[in-house]
Simulated assay, not measured.
Amino acid sequence: MAEPPAAGLAGHLDPAPEHLHALSVACGLELSSFRAPHVARTVDRAVARLGAAGPAGLAAAIATDPGLRARFRRAVAVSTTGMFRDPAQFDLLDRLMREGDRRGRPLRVWSIGASDGSELCSVALLLAGQDGLQGATLLGSDLLPENVELARQRSRDRLHPEALSTVRFEQRDVARTAPAGPWDVVLCRNVLIHLAPAAKQAMLDHAAGALSAGGLLVLGRSERLPRDDRRGLDDAGANAYRRPA
């Protein structure tokens, strides 16, 4: 289904660059990296909720209210997650990780858009069920430092000490940089759908480029690599791709 046009959003959003720039400065996120309709809807809802005087009024409010700024940032970054979210994908991931030939190496997993850490904690529990935690490296990256802190706190509540010792979280804009690889599994689920084309392509470049030989890239249920641009990856299942060994 096509996105509704930004111009129809209750008349609040002025697409003038100076307003989006002011909002970017106020919230600490580069809004041009996100899809324009998504930003428009987020701004429109925030303006309506606050009764602000359009985007300029919203920018002023965000700049002076830390709680409002945090709420707006999480809405833009769509920090929605949950343990074992999309169970069918975790069933597939469980099978693919068991089938992978790591030649005795501990598994390295990178979760992009880690949010509160639920995805990475779910992977840790999967590996515990496979007796695959020893020596494993599980990294969660998120654009928002407040999400990173939340993920660190919640992982302590969710994981036993052995699993917790394998998990770490960092703040990172993956459209700009990637952590040192290679990675056996890269999870980039429900992130790309919210990004502007240039940021999306940059993130895919980093995600696919970080894979080890035989490594897996797992996207969200509504995200797919185009057949004419698989970045050297083969189909490995629904929304999953593998770099040839």
Rank of each mutant, 00 (worst) to 15 (best):
M1T: 13
M1Q: 12
A2E: 15
E3W: 14
G8L: 11
H12Q: 04
L13E: 08
A16T: 04
V25R: 13
V25Q: 14
G28V: 07
L29E: 06
R35W: 15
H38S: 12
H38K: 13
T42M: 11
A46R: 13
R49A: 15
L50S: 07
G51T: 12
G51S: 09
A56K: 03
A61E: 15
A61I: 09
A63V: 09
A63F: 08
T64I: 14
R69L: 06
R71S: 15
R71W: 13
F72K: 01
F72R: 02
R74S: 15
R74K: 11
A77M: 07
S79W: 06
T80Y: 09
T80E: 13
T81K: 11
G82F: 03
M83Q: 11
A88E: 15
Q89P: 04
L92P: 02
R95S: 14
M97C: 15
G100M: 14
R103A: 14
G104Q: 15
G104I: 08
P106L: 10
P106C: 13
L107Q: 00
R108M: 01
S115T: 05
G117C: 10
S118Q: 08
C121Y: 01
S122L: 11
V123F: 04
Q130E: 02
D131N: 11
D131E: 15
D131F: 06
G132H: 00
Q134N: 15
G135T: 09
A136G: 08
G140C: 10
E149T: 08
E149P: 04
L150F: 06
R152F: 05
S155G: 11
R156V: 03
D157Q: 14
H160I: 05
P161M: 10
A163C: 04
V167P: 06
R168C: 03
F169C: 07
E170D: 13
A178P: 02
A180Q: 12
G181Q: 00
P182W: 01
P182H: 01
V185Q: 04
V186W: 08
N190T: 06
V191R: 05
L192F: 01
L195W: 02
L195I: 09
A196E: 09
P197E: 10
M203I: 03
L204Y: 01
L204E: 02
D205M: 09
H206L: 05
S212I: 01
L216T: 06
L216H: 06
L217R: 05
L219E: 04
S222K: 13
E223I: 12
R224G: 03
R224E: 07
R227P: 06
R227L: 05
G232F: 10
D234T: 13
A236I: 08
A238N: 07
N239Y: 12
R243A: 04
